[in-house]
């Protein structure tokens, strides 16, 4: 099987189109985030939070759940950009994000066609696929109405950072080494990609959750609020973000479990043993254990709940190390997957 250079070039062209579209989307969302504010200037009555886990107290007056936005409130006077323009920017951004995802998928699909195999045989392809899953998962989250559109700013930021990292490890389209030539690549790597992409979105929401929570705490005691906590007034309540984060992790965790099991079955076929504490196996295991701890931490009362988002952050840090650290700096059996 040889590489078709025309298709490989087309894949790279689609990649560039995707980056441009995502850049447009990011700009549009930034405008919407900054200027389309309808923050209530009148102190709303403090709402008692009745969540299953028990509320932590009244919401701060300014800190309004964005689902309850008051359409009648007059838009504040903002320099340059009107409220209507800002909303328009958000709509354009949404279109650019969806088109970007299409270009993203095309880039991956064309690469698959160029080499006649699954498009995830090296680290570059893996990261491109993970960020595609992240974008699709995020679009689903927005479409389901879990979060407001303007928060896509942060998902786009995470995606673009990932893709930027992908370009640092760009690899020419090429066929696979024999060890990867197995139908298990479709199963194991696909599961790892989907799980990683959903964890990535979970990371975005958990960071927003932490910012929102910190903002609420600071404003409750009238402390000085600095970046990034200044993002707080426009974020949903931490409790709401907490539930979204939880759902995303609940989705990703079984997928991750499955990816590891499929990897172990494949390892048995190609390396002769199902588990050998190879560095990639070690770090996959560590990530699994950390995310398992996240899922458990919410069942251990107040202290556990407080720490839960931080455990999720550590989980994503481990995932990133597993992807970049292990592939680039540690010698192991996965190294031959090619950087």
């Amino acid at each position: 099987m040889t590489t078709d250079p025309a298709l490989a070039d087309a894949s790279n062209t689609a990649f560039v189109a995707m980056i441009l579209l995502y850049a447009v989307a990011m700009f549009g969302y930034a405008v919407e985030y900054a200027f389309a504010r309808r923050a209530k200037t009148v102190a709303a009555p403090a709402r008692e939070l009745v969540t299953a886990g028990g509320g932590t107290g009244p919401a701060s007056p300014e800190h309004v759940d964005e689902s309850e936005e008051d359409d009648d409130a007059p838009p504040p006077v903002t320099p340059g950009v009107s409220f209507r323009q800002a909303v328009l920017a958000g709509r354009i951004a949404l279109v650019a994000m969806v088109l970007g995802a299409v270009a993203h998928a095309a880039s991956l699909g064309l690469r698959a066609a160029a080499v006649g195999r699954w498009p995830w045989g090296n680290m570059y392809e893996f990261i491109v696929a993970v960020s595609l899953v992240g974008v699709i998962a995020w679009i689903a989250v927005v479409a389901k109405g879990w979060v407001a559109r303007r928060l896509s700013l942060f998902a786009m930021l995470a995606t673009v950072l990932m893709l930027g990292a992908a370009t640092r490890v760009y690899t020419e389209a090429a066929p696979l080494v024999p060890a990867l030539d197995s139908y298990w690549i479709a199963i194991h790597v696909f599961a790892a990609i989907v799980a990683t992409g959903v964890f990535m979105v979970g990371f975005v929401t958990v960071v927003l959750q932490l910012i929102s929570r910190r903002y609420a705490e600071l404003s409750a005691r009238d402390a000085v609020i600095r970046f990034p906590m200044t993002l707080g007034p426009r974020l949903p309540l931490a409790e709401k973000l907490d539930r979204i984060t939880w759902r995303l992790h609940v989705m990703a965790f079984p997928l991750w479990t499955f990816a590891i099991i499929a990897g172990a079955i494949w390892a048995r076929e190609s390396w002769g043993r199902y588990w050998g504490w190879d560095p990639k196996e070690v770090w996959s295991f560590v990530a699994w254990v950390v995310y398992a701890a996240y899922l458990h931490s919410r069942a251990t009362g107040g202290a556990g709940r407080r720490w839960a988002p931080w455990i999720a952050v550590v989980g994503w840090a481990v995932m990133l190390f597993n992807l970049f650290g292990v592939n680039l700096f540690i010698d192991g059996l996965h190294s031959y997957a090619g950087v």
Binding site: F285, V286, A293, H296, G304
Partner: peptide, 27 residues
């Protein structure tokens, strides 16, 4: 208790790390 299990889980995660940083006889 659940809390102990949670702490042990995190310790297990940390305990697994040195094996990927130091060379291992079995590997």
């Amino acid at each position: 208790s659940m809390r102990t299990a949670l702490v042990l889980l995190l310790i297990l995660a940390v305990a697994a790390v040195p094996g990927s940083l130091l060379p291992q006889r079995s590997l």
